[in-house]
Design a protein around this nucleic acid. Sequence first.
DNA 1: ATTAAATGATACCAAAAGGTATTATGTCAA
DNA 2: TTGACATAATACCTTTTGGTATCATTTAAT
Lengths: 104, 104
Amino acid sequence: MRTRVQDSFRALADPTRREILVMLSKREMTIGEIAAEFPITRAAVKKHLTMLEEGQLISVHPIGRERINRLEPTGIKNVHDWMSYFDQFWDDKLSSLQTLLNNQ
Amino acid sequence: MRTRVQDSFRALADPTRREILVMLSKREMTIGEIAAEFPITRAAVKKHLTMLEEGQLISVHPIGRERINRLEPTGIKNVHDWMSYFDQFWDDKLSSLQTLLNNQ
DNA sequence: ATTAAATGATACCAAAAGGTATTATGTCAA
DNA sequence: TTGACATAATACCTTTTGGTATCATTTAAT
């Protein structure tokens, strides 16, 4: 099954891709600029960017011969929404753990 | 690199595992009970549960010959914390999109 | 004490992921 | 127009992942 949520979760499951997202949160970058920051080839970075785009975590904007990669909030919201269901659990559980620790 | 955050993200990247988490949010279950809900073998489910445990998304509690699988908030919090950095972006961006739509 | 039940462990397989190298394509600049 | 530059596309390789089948181990029940 390949839903939008699935593509977003899959894209976030790789540390290099998460690092790229942090970089793009500071400024828009081309593939070449991103690749310069990693010890892997441009081709490998391109694959990561494709997955990030499929997960709606970035959008890509061709300008001339360059392609500007931009952070896109949709994918993060996908994941955020799915996870929000569990907020009640870790909220309750961790706060009661906190209470437990405070009382010792 | 295999950090705790990485293990949590990796565990969430599979749809079967996410479904298991939803099931465990309703009640604690043994491996056998979980496996009965999926068209895959117990061995496959066991592997999923191992990854969920590594990602700190569940905890496992042996009782007699059974193993009770319980939802564990730590892993979800790991992911939540990592993602909270991006809240500013999708918060701003989506709210300005909302504003844009409202003004049309 | 035996047997059945619940799980663990291992070896194996196909497909997906993450990577490389190489070749092709489009675009800017002299 | 002819290079040089930025990216695309393809073929290929290795490791991880998701799955199976099989056998071993522990525990409950008769």
